[in-house]
Design a binder for these strands. Sequence first.
DNA 1: GCATAATGTTAACATTGCTTACATTATCGG
DNA 2: CCGATAATGTAAGCAATGTTAACATTATGC
Lengths: 199, 199
Amino acid sequence: MGTNAARTDYHHGDLRSTLVLAALEMLEAGEPFSLRAVARRAGVSTAAPYRHFADREALETALAVHGLRELTSDLAAGTDPLVSAVEIGELAVGYVRFALRRPALFRLMFGRACDDQDDDRVRAARALHDYLEAVMTEIFPQSDPAPLATAGWSLAHGLAFLHLDGKLPSTDPVAIDERVRSTFAAVLPPAARPGIEEP
Amino acid sequence: MGTNAARTDYHHGDLRSTLVLAALEMLEAGEPFSLRAVARRAGVSTAAPYRHFADREALETALAVHGLRELTSDLAAGTDPLVSAVEIGELAVGYVRFALRRPALFRLMFGRACDDQDDDRVRAARALHDYLEAVMTEIFPQSDPAPLATAGWSLAHGLAFLHLDGKLPSTDPVAIDERVRSTFAAVLPPAARPGIEEP
DNA sequence: GCATAATGTTAACATTGCTTACATTATCGG
DNA sequence: CCGATAATGTAAGCAATGTTAACATTATGC
């Protein structure tokens, strides 16, 4: 109990998870999202969520953590044995697809300042960054991976947001995938060849 | 008048501009922003803004248009005779600086879907895109400028947002500038040399 | 000058985030 | 096994917000 209250089985039975789930469903459905609406959907009183989240922002942080983890595992699962530079483009395609598939969640994850007080959130964000850096290290063993990871993440992130905002044409999903690939190709073509022996 | 009501001089004297200005000041000051608060600051009743903006979103769209124009002219003024590929990095530095200097405004400009109904907003967004494409055309005359413009914009945009969100360390402004430069250098090094004769 | 449309005001409604006081029930020490 | 206690949920209410409707006022065109 106390800090580690995650599996408790009280009046409602792990209301906290229920609330997060309800909020995720509402985000997915594109419905506007409010603490009261979430409580309603969970079949619980207006004030009940405040037993589990300090305020609205705390719920949003929990949702962001969920999204960050899902995105990270999505990317890792999509292209597991990263070998060629081409696959970086595929990684970016996965990133942009995630953003367009879950626009509201994506905006929650990246739309506001990272809550540095929340350990879970900081960890989840760093896990994503570390994964990208590891991939870059594997693909470009002779270059400094840090700027490459920053570049790759920023590029994918910018593509995701600009498509989300309608700043780049975003009607045809196939065209989007192609644009992401060609953008990465335009920028990372003189990459290291695969199969380089480790130094 | 009618649609072109911009310079009218009624009871208050161009309340519309006053509201936009008041809202911008509040954004700049980091204050939370509400229609009522804007009306209060403009010294006008709660319902007055509805004579000039259909709803809150309409005001936000006006602010976004303002911000897009300012950003575009900022960039164009900062580096006027674009010549070398290095300057693209400087362009990105200006972009990221703008985002960090006006975080709330930047989020308004790019945080939600581009209101395709609003001609001003569509035009302002396209003007920015066209400017970037023109720069790319000038610098890389032999390459297809479209993917390069997309890549440059996305990269700068992603850097801006990741810094804004605290996903990349954002305490020291000088370090940020340097990171933006090195990121662009890591990705656009084999650029065309300056001084290429026009084809 | 006067009809009329443009602009601003007052008052109200529904919804929201949040708090306070209270009710209920799980858990634990005896 | 039982009662104290803390964890959890509820009811009611406050202040703020977006929005609208009904009304007042002033500028503008005939």
